[in-house]
């Protein structure tokens, strides 16, 4: 064998040497490209961590399709012997799916819209105007984020009950529309940061052309801030969707003593045991008393219910995945 460049014969030793270098480059990599070993390490880490992340969900899916014999059989672990759709049917009926879904959509979409509007206005004011007490107001926004909402829970509850708002959507929409919804402070900061990055020259041009401040906001600032609006709306939606604590306090039947109070899917899930009991009793009245004994939902039914409760958001996530992931980048949250 001869060297390609100099065309002189290559000794056996040199050949081995070159081979060693080549192997070294492939496995350990160089400055420009990381080696195979490193790549393997990265993939191993990602896959194992990914598995840990997905483990509860996998468990949930597998358990939810198990039939009763499979549940009792210790040897059946990850692969059920038969798929059972019965769990889903029961869970679906106990959760009162369509009503709960409609309530959930109202409970999360309306406050999300109001919150986005209010935070956009506030963020715009912080970014574009130097009004008196601006710094103080900004500090207060941060305070509203840091102070846990539980301090305000009791007085808010009494306030809502004084104004006869308990059990109505207003308990969520009003604070959201006035910039005091869930994590409003974060969105105000996002909008402020975002508007700070949009060019002033457009505003000035519009001002010269005689546009008023509100017109500038609606026709120039809003179209420019679509990424921030998307982030704010999506995250508000998710956070309101997943919130149950204040929801069951302000809107739940415990607040009103009414049965027809609004209940989101997750609130329904949190009181699944009681609902299941009621469901079984209502069934046993029409069938036979034998069913009365089975009043505790087995884990397959509970997992099926959990799965049903998270599926709508999961679908939203699958469709809008890119927006969720990329949006943060585009809003420049993490900017200086």
């Amino acid at each position: 064998m001869r060297d390609e460049m100099t065309n002189r014969p290559v000794s056996r030793e040199e050949k081995l040497n070159r081979f060693a270098w080549k192997a070294r480059r492939i496995f350990l990599g160089n400055r420009r490209q990381s080696g195979l070993l490193f790549q393997a390490f990265v993939y191993a880490m990602l896959i194992s961590l990914g598995f840990v992340y997905l483990y509860p969900l996998l468990y949930m899916v597998v358990t939810s399709v198990k039939s009763l014999p499979d549940l009792l059989d210790v040897s059946v672990n990850w692969v059920p012997t038969a798929l059972s759709g019965d769990n889903f049917k029961q869970a679906y009926e106990v959760l009162n799916f369509w009503d709960a879904l409609w309530d959930t959509i109202q409970i999360s979409v309306l406050p999300a819209i109001c919150q986005t509007i209010a935070c956009a206005l506030t963020g715009y004011a912080f970014a574009r105007y130097r009004f008196p007490f601006r710094k103080l107001a900004f500090a207060l926004v941060l305070v509203t984020f840091i102070l846990p909402p539980y301090v305000l829970m009791v007085p808010k509850y009494t306030m809502f009950s004084d104004y006869k708002l308990l059990g109505k959507l207003g308990t969520l929409v009003l604070p959201a529309g006035l910039g005091q919804g869930m994590n409003s402070a974060i969105f105000i900061l996002i909008f402020a940061q975002f508007f700070r990055q949009t060019p002033l020259s457009l505003d000035e041009a519009a001002r010269v052309d005689g546009a008023g401040e509100s017109r500038i906001f609606v026709e120039i600032a809003i179209p420019l801030s679509i990424p921030a609006i998307v982030v704010s709306f999506l995250f508000s939606l998710v956070w309101y969707w997943n919130e149950t604590y204040f929801l069951s306090l302000y809107l739940g039947s415990s607040a009103m003593g009414k049965a027809d109070a609004m209940a989101s899917l997750l609130v329904q899930l949190s009181r699944f045991e009681q609902s299941y009991l009621g469901y079984m009793q209502s069934l046993s009245q029409s069938w036979s008393a034998a069913h009365l004994s089975e009043t505790v939902a087995n884990e397959a039914i509970r997992m099926a219910a959990t799965l049903i409760a998270i599926v709508p958001l999961l679908l939203v996530y699958l469709v809008l995945q890119k927006q969720f992931v990329q949006s943060i980048d585009r809003t420049g949250i993490t900017g200086e």
Binding site: Y53, W241, Y245, L266, F272, T306, L313, F324, V325
Partner: peptide, 18 residues
């Protein structure tokens, strides 16, 4: 998508169930 999934699905009742 996997690592951001928890942002979407984590909620009190769901965690309690799990």
């Amino acid at each position: 998508a996997i690592f951001f999934l928890p942002i979407i699905v984590v909620s009190g009742p769901m965690l309690n169930m799990l």
